[in-house]
Amino acid sequence: MKTNKVEIVKLTSAEISALWATNINVSVVICMMTHFLETCTDPEILKLLEETKQLAEKHMNEIEQVFVKEKIVVPEAFKAEKHVVHKAPKLFSDIYYIQCVLQMSKFGVASHTLGLTISAREDMRILYKNLMDDVSQLYNHVVSVMQEKGIYVRMPFMNYPNEIDFINKENFLTGWFGRRRSLLGIEVTHLMINAFQNEMGMQLCTGFSQVTQDVELREYFLRGKNLCKHIVSSIYDVMEESEVPAAITWDQGVTNSTVAPFSDQFMLFIIGILSNLGIAAYGVGLSSTMRRDISAMYANFLTKTGAFGEDGMNLMIERKWMEQPPQFEAAK
């Protein structure tokens, strides 16, 4: 009798951890889309939010089926009925909503690609390939809608290279004193990515700080806002010096509402996600730059964001809000 190999090979620690993280992240998307759908007034953006929520619910169902099949406890994650305040006033603009979907789809493509490449079992590779295809399609749809509405922010343009050249000056790596060389295209790419993410984070921290009733969390969110502001300003200074356009414009993202649309636990967790994404992005930016002053700037971002993220994690743990990720058993 032929045995199905997939059925007898257990999931690896990498596969379990990826499924757990994906489940948590998808639950976050569902909660955010629940509030966005209640308050969005733009018909085109509303359709996109519906598509995003339906896709997240589909992915949640597929992942939970794996947990049940493997007899692994399903994470509590975030349930909309517990963490979304029904009929809360609009806290962010419709433009901010679609910017969130853009960032979520980018993160989804990256995280599902990682899930695919760390998976050994064929059914897991197929699962993550399908998740990645779904989110890639969503990303393309979001970009198309934003371009049609004239709100998509492109990376800066540069002249096409027209000859082959080699670096022949040691000062190519410097940046501390004197006239600095112009920025490389790859350096501008990562500076823009980090500026954009911190613009989003600044708006989010602003909104959360004006609706939470917890004084300690309000101070933490305001600290996050100031950190994002510092990072954006530092990046723009570098780009302005090289006369690279760095304008990121949209409408005012935060309304004057003082009613929280989400639980304090959920809002603090979201800021934690942004901190982790920032640390990852600064690491990639650091590895991609060839100017020492920019390397030092990224190192500074990493230090400050790491400390900020750790403080947020401690707030979660103190309030017993942090769910335990999959962990190896302690040695006896």
Rank of each mutant, 00 (worst) to 15 (best):
E310K: 15
Q213Y: 06
M158H: 06
S275R: 07
E170P: 05
V66R: 12
M313I: 15
R179E: 14
N23Y: 11
P325I: 13
V109Q: 03
K47F: 00
L114Q: 04
T303A: 12
I72Y: 10
L102P: 00
T41G: 01
T3E: 13
T34K: 05
F328L: 12
M104Q: 11
S105M: 11
L114S: 08
G306A: 09
G185Y: 02
M32H: 04
A246P: 00
N314R: 15
S257G: 03
L191C: 07
V68P: 00
S105E: 14
S105G: 09
T41W: 01
K82M: 12
Y236A: 14
F172R: 09
H59K: 11
H35T: 03
I118S: 00
E199H: 13
V238K: 10
E7Y: 09
E15G: 03
M60L: 13
E187A: 03
T206H: 10
K82E: 15
A299G: 08
E70S: 01
V74N: 04
N61V: 09
N25T: 07
K53Y: 08
E81D: 09
E62H: 15
T41E: 14
F221T: 03
I126A: 10
M146D: 02
S295E: 15
R319Y: 04
A296H: 05
V9R: 15
P326C: 03
E310T: 12
K58T: 15
M239I: 01
N25E: 08
N159R: 15
M322K: 10
Q197N: 13
M104H: 06
V254T: 08
I273F: 05
G253M: 09
K87E: 12
F196K: 13
C40S: 13
V9D: 12
S27G: 01
I235Y: 02
L277A: 06
R125E: 02
L48T: 10
Q213G: 10
E323H: 09
Q54Y: 04
T22Q: 09
F166Y: 14
I231C: 05
Y96K: 00
A330L: 13
Q265V: 04
E163T: 06
L55A: 10
H59G: 03
K82T: 14
K71E: 14
V232I: 07
L217I: 03
V74K: 10
K58Q: 15
L183Q: 05
A18D: 02
D251C: 04
E76C: 04
P89G: 05
A299R: 13
A120I: 04
